[in-house]
């Protein structure tokens, strides 16, 4: 079982995914929630690349991983801009306190 194969990579990815979900669910700070999302995206990427390596699908998995990285960077930029705006309006970034739409 110590011989590293596809299962090992997938397990690492699964644990990383769960940790990311845990972070998103428990954290109050919006920036920390973002970090959890980054963990989830990374775990998805590990899956894509692992399947592209161990399956016979060519290299589409790596291409998708590349796209995910690009999307993550765009998402981080937008999300941080929004967080910054929230901070300007509410003077804190705790997601459970920002629960009203107007005023």
């Amino acid at each position: 079982m110590l011989q590293v194969g596809l299962t090992h990579f997938l397990t690492v990815s699964a644990i990383l995914f769960s940790l990311g979900v845990y972070g998103v669910v428990t954290r109050k700070n919006a920036v920390m929630v973002l970090m959890g999302i980054e963990l989830i995206l990374n775990s998805a990427n590990i899956n894509f690349i692992a399947f592209s390596r161990f399956g016979n699908f060519g290299y589409s998995g790596q291409i998708i991983a590349l796209f995910v990285i690009i999307l993550a960077s765009a998402e981080a930029a937008i999300a941080l801009a929004i967080v910054l705006n929230i901070y300007k309006t509410f003077a804190n970034v705790n997601v459970d306190e920002i629960d009203h739409l107007k005023d």
Binding site: V4, N45, I46, I49, A50, R53, Q62, L66, I69
Partner: peptide
């Protein structure tokens, strides 16, 4: 990723 032979990624 490197171990999965995805050097560019």
């Amino acid at each position: 990723y490197v171990l999965l032979a995805a050097d560019f990624i």
